[in-house]
Amino acid sequence: MSGDELTFDEFVIASAGRLLRTAVFLVYDRHLAEDLLQTTYERVARRWTRILRGGHQPEAYARKVLVNLAIDHHKRRKRRPDLPVGGTSDVERLTGARETYAAAGTPLDDVLATLPVKQRAVVVLRFWCDLSEHEIAEALGISRGTVKSHTSRAMAALRRQLAEEGAAHER
């Protein structure tokens, strides 16, 4: 995707699907994912000219914004679970009608949803977005060593929980 002649509208049309899926895998909540995506595009639009002029990849920039928004949102929720209602996703969360994406409900989803948010972000960026350790580190603003440790912890947790669930199924 060369940013030279790309207009913002074209960028939205081309990237919305991929970024929406990334958002959903990060937060496991379709409405929240849409809210975060909207905020992401607003921020990208504000810096659109600068992004193109600086030779950055708009989608990489948007992904970075999105992942960090998701992490920040999770931290905020954790710190203050009684935050005032803000959007549709909040209403659904408060009423207990949490909507997840279509494939949710598989054992792997349940396990992924329980991972700490940064570990989950690393897993999503690695296995869904196919980013290298270096790219993940840049997107999250952390060192490569931290990416490695997040990845190994996440994988260990996934393996452990999947083994437990497998054992439970066999019984």
Partner: peptide
């Protein structure tokens, strides 16, 4: 491989509809 396959399959169920695309373009 399990994770990659899982995300690939899950992605099929997450499609942005026309309304969302329009909203994203218009809100900006």
């Amino acid at each position: 491989a399990l994770l990659r396959d899982h995300y690939r399959r899950a992605a099929e169920g997450v499609q942005p509809d026309r309304e969302l695309i329009d909203r994203l373009r218009n809100t900006t």
